[in-house]
Design a protein around this nucleic acid. Sequence first.
DNA 1: CAGTGAGCGAGCTTCCGCTTGACTT
Length: 774
Amino acid sequence: MAKNLVIVESPAKAKTIEGFLGKDFVVRSSFGHVMDLNKTKLSVDIENDFKPEYEISPDKKKVVTELKKMAKEAETVWLATDEDREGEAISWHLFNALGLTEDSTKRIVFHEITKNAITNAIDNPRGIDTNLVSAQQARRVLDRLVGYELSPLLWKKVKPALSAGRVQSVAVRLIVEREEEIKAFESVSYFRVVAEFQLTERENQQTFQAEYPVRFSTFEEAKVFLENHTGAEFKVASVEKKPAKKSPAPPFTTSTLQQEASRKLGFPVGKTMRVAQQLYESGKITYMRTDSVNLSNTALGMAKQEISKLFGKEYIRIRKFTTKTKGAQEAHEAIRPTYLSNQSVDRSDDEQRLYSLIWKRTIASQMSEAQLEKTTVKIDSSFAKEQFVANGEVVKFDGFLKVYIEGTDEENGNGKSGMLPAMESGDPLSLNVMNARQRFTKHPPRYTEASLVKKMEELGIGRPSTYAPTISTIQKREYIVKERRPSQKRNVQMITLQDGNVQEKMLTENGATEKAKLYPTDIGTVVNRFLVEYFKNILDYNFTANVEKEFDDIAEGKKQWNQMIKEFYGPFHDKIETTQETSGKFTGERLLGQDPETGKNVYSKVGRFGPIAQIGDTDSEEKPRFAGLRNGLSLETITLKEALGLFDFPRSLGEYENEEVTVAIGRFGPYVKHNKKFYSIGKEDDPSVINLERAIEIISEKRSADQKKIIKEFKEDEDVQVLNGRYGAYLVIKKQNYKIPKEHDPSELTLEDCYKISRDPKNMPKKRYNRKRK
DNA sequence: CAGTGAGCGAGCTTCCGCTTGACTT
């Protein structure tokens, strides 16, 4: 039996490290946290100094049993979890869960997975840092208290099953407020004048563009300006050259990797992390959840060698980057290829593309600056007060630009500045064409998943391991939706001066095809309004940054963790109680007007099942009528007419095959009903205008689709069917589903086989924990 | 992925952070 058991957090890491250590060492992983608060209750003893009630996480029981057994047999247990707050806590939890003793346990840390770093760590063990553990407890308990007291308040005041938390609620707030800014934004149009010139006395006919520095606010002004320039003369007033430098971006962290993969590969953040995980597990890249931009010396050495080999010595410039991120814990290296000599990997297409991005970014970060020459040419016009300006940029030495240019979030980079022809002050210029094109000021952009992560990181909210999950949580809760909404076309005026003539024309501008953007839902907006009104301090963008300072104090032993929690919890809990008692339902209710038929009030609000329209008052004797909001209607913008339209269902369309066809709106959207069967209506049809003809089409389409999924039917017993579902073939008998064991070929099944399968309890569907009640 | 198809109720829901597979009707 091995004398030494080393425990790390990740199994891939365990495998690598085991290779560095001798036979006397066995390396295993804890798979992250092993203990946590029970999730069915608060699990914080408020009366008893906020003592957290930990348990071994249900899904970690097996791992813990295994580790415990191995620990017992080992002479020394080395706790080698990450050197940050959470890692220290994991070590502490392992110490307790495995029943370790101080004599036989050592705590070691390393920041890079190299043989040197590991052996060095083994030579310098320490004890568990209890202050750091306390800081983690404070973090954990604070999050639990906030989450488990705010969420139930939302269930009572807004809608069941909602959630709130230190991180997710602020993320939602960012999106809601951005949307409000956009709504409040008034786009202003202006005219930008761009002229295209060439040197008059030059054989080389290279043209270049120059912009007039004044923007005109009206069409008339712009037109007058152009008209004045018929027959104008132009000459170069000045030429100014300035050297400039560009430096490469630092190596990837989780957040910057997500941003670049989104910009350059179009990956949503979840996909980036999945693909990176595969690369990590196959040993191609270092750990992908990190906030550090640091590269190990081994990596720098490899970079130097690789750059020299590929581009030459003059391209090498080794840099040590330092992080500027709030609250960064830097337990790992930056994300980089394990071996920089591999420019590509023989993996799936997605993995290859992401790997290549990581390789380029890493290499570029250790390459020389690019040397540029920026040229500014000013041009005199015989008619204009100001000078036209042309900007040019020439790359004198490409440096890191040879491999990598960081992407930007700007929607259309209009600063294109290429090469300018050589010229001198006094050179006469001829005008080819001058355009005054209408432009519109742009509202701030909606967040994409990746730009939201960037913002969260700036605010210090969330951690590398939670960015992607948080974004998926707030979508699951239906606080926000990710959508690619088509940008609207718009008419743009353009005035052109060419060959001494001024002409006007109208262009249609198609907005650029947009990436999927994040939009708040009605629920998200209402929940945010509630939280900002009653819990402003927690929704404050600086809340996390402020508590992080206190966690740091705890980690340094300058503050007691339960004291900190006590100071927070007192006022917080009071606020929960008073809000509970004094405030009514918070539904974002709006009175839209009166129903012309009954004279009753019509409202829009968030109901039990989501946004609804309501006719009649809730406290009146007669029950109000309800209808869910549909297709793009929103609480804030719905009109009385639209709301009343929702009550026009179910509507009869006529008869088909001697049965009535009706259209209605149900729980899962609009549907057509015919002969007790339901047929969903897709987005392309509007249920309020659909006619019988179209309904019949929908019915037939569905029937033929159903035909395709039937693998087998039996004349003898029509209740028995073999169907093709999303997980492959399955068996249905009287609406009960059964698994088909692997040894059967679904298309060969006989009726007897089917009965046999249905009698075997092994093939019964597993009970889902959260089954819908009838 | 396919399928689901009610009507303001009983009992359920929920946090953040660390890690990977399990395995579906």
